[in-house]
Simulated scan of single mutants.
Amino acid sequence: MAMTFVALPTEVVRAYQQGAHDANGQVPERAVSEGGGNPCRHCLRMIAEGAGMLILAHRPFPAPQPYAEVGPIFLCAEPCARGGGEAVPEMLASPEYIVRGYGPDDRIIYGTGAVVPTEAISARAEAHLADPRVAYVHVRSARNNCYQLRVDRAQDAFGESILIRKKREAR
């Protein structure tokens, strides 16, 4: 199945970089990266040692609701290019992560969450996205449950899910 690793939208990140309030109503904190442990959720790379970074509370869901977790994330303090694509991003450098499916209502699909080795993220996400109940997948820190990125079904040039198109064509 074709899938894509998705970074936070550029317009959301630029707003934070310009001082917009985070999910807790606070201005993002500015800090200097010590290197190695500060993954930017926009460029999907580690923030280099000595580079400016933002620390803020983010809710990667469209609206508050019981399953809409809020948690800390890091972003490059200066504008960076949006990352993403079919390859597992380099920022996923820990030995394991939580991989969990969510429905179109942005609620957890029970039974999809598991801690998996980093090298198994793609296979686990692909298995979740093959389930018609799952709209998208989150990859989260295995130690602290921090949001890392989203995984979606790949879209064709017309914005249609490749998986949905293949199922329709098979009929």
Rank of each mutant, 00 (worst) to 15 (best):
A130R: 08
T118N: 12
V13W: 03
V116C: 01
N144H: 12
L149I: 10
C80G: 02
M1W: 04
D106L: 06
V134I: 02
P117V: 13
V27G: 08
V70G: 02
R143T: 10
M1A: 12
G84L: 08
R107W: 05
S122A: 15
K166V: 13
R45D: 11
A81F: 05
Y97L: 03
D22E: 04
M91S: 08
L75R: 00
D156F: 09
V139E: 04
E69K: 10
R168N: 11
C76Q: 04
I47W: 01
S33N: 09
Y67L: 11
K167V: 13
Y110A: 10
V6F: 12
R165M: 11
M3E: 07
P104N: 14
I47F: 04
L92K: 10
Q18V: 07
P64G: 13
I55W: 00
N145A: 13
R153L: 08
P39A: 06
E96V: 11
V134Y: 00
H128C: 07
V6W: 08
V139G: 02
T112Y: 02
A135R: 01
R124T: 08
Y16E: 02
H128W: 03
L163F: 09
N38F: 15
L75P: 00
R100N: 02
G111N: 01
S33Y: 06
Y97V: 04
C40V: 02
G113R: 00
V134R: 00
D106E: 14
A2R: 15
S94W: 14
M53P: 00
Y67C: 12
F74M: 05
N145C: 08
F74K: 00
L149A: 10
A93L: 15
P89C: 12
I121R: 05
D22M: 02
E69A: 11
A68N: 06
Q148A: 11
L75F: 01
E11F: 13
P79S: 03
F158A: 14
L8V: 12
G36K: 11
C40H: 00
R30Y: 07
G103T: 01
D22T: 04
L8P: 06
Y147M: 01
M53L: 14
Y102I: 02
Y102H: 00
N145E: 10
A123G: 06
A120Q: 13
V139D: 06
E119F: 15
C146V: 05
G35I: 10
R153K: 14
R82W: 08
L92N: 08
L149W: 07
L44P: 05
M91K: 09
C40L: 03
Y67N: 12
V70F: 04
E169S: 11
E69T: 08
P95H: 14
T10A: 13
S161H: 05
V6E: 09
R82L: 12
L8F: 05
I98K: 03
A20F: 07
A157G: 11
G103F: 01
E119K: 12
